[in-house]
Amino acid sequence: MSVVPADVLPGGALAVEGTAPEAAELGPRARMWPSLAAVYRAQLSRARVARIPLLFVATFQSIGIMILMRGVVDGGGEAQAVVAGSAVLVVAFVALNLLAQYFGQLRASGGLDHYATLPVPPAAVVLGAAGAYASFTVPGTVVTAVFGCALFGLPLANLWILIAVIPLAGAALAGLGAALGLLAPRPELATLLGQLGMSAALLLGVLPPERMPEAVRLARDLLPSTYGVEAFARTFGPHPDWARVLGDLAVCGGVGVLSLAVATWAYRRAAVR
């Protein structure tokens, strides 16, 4: 079927090739921002195909939890913690759990080879995927927060803080999810770790901390999603302490930077074996 004989090719210097050791020019390298944008866009488009049912599940799960807690919690600080915790739980479900599963499966099936044989910076792949998964959470988180405010009679005035909470908590949890997915030796283990991470965010984030024993409260402080929950919960009060909100968000941001760096390292390690 091949009709072109090798020796009539352009520059077909077959015989002299050995004597010309000059290295050929390399193709262009994909730059950081354009490739990040390309990965982000591609990952976001996957939502349309595969993720919409899961986004509904994430939202209904949080709304269901709030309805359950309505019978237990009677307004005040506890209600604020429940609404904030449920809203951030949507972020944990998608960014931590689903991203860990995605990277776990991609690694196990050999799908990482596709990216590893393209001249793209590892950080662009990890950040693009993490950013897209964090973006998936926006509608669910907003719906949950608005519904919760209506249910518990909380003010809607400061909901704009979600503009900061979603990306920062998203960065921290997505970074963690990506790192877990890429480091887990088997995909089932990545799924398990993602699920456990989400369960921890559920139990430690949604339940009001005042009723927890000391050891559990310590575990709660170690979970990055807690700081997103606290920052969000503080803004419901009549006079929010903005310095502490900022502090909590800074912790989320710091954990985000750190975990995304670990995830990038894990990606490099997984891509070339």
Binding site: P28, V49, G110, G111, D113, H114, P119
Partner: peptide
């Protein structure tokens, strides 16, 4: 990656 294009057996990165 700057010299060659690789078509592997797996399409899982592009499937969706």
């Amino acid at each position: 990656s700057r010299i060659l294009a690789y078509l592997g057996q797996e399409s899982s990165a592009l499937d969706e």
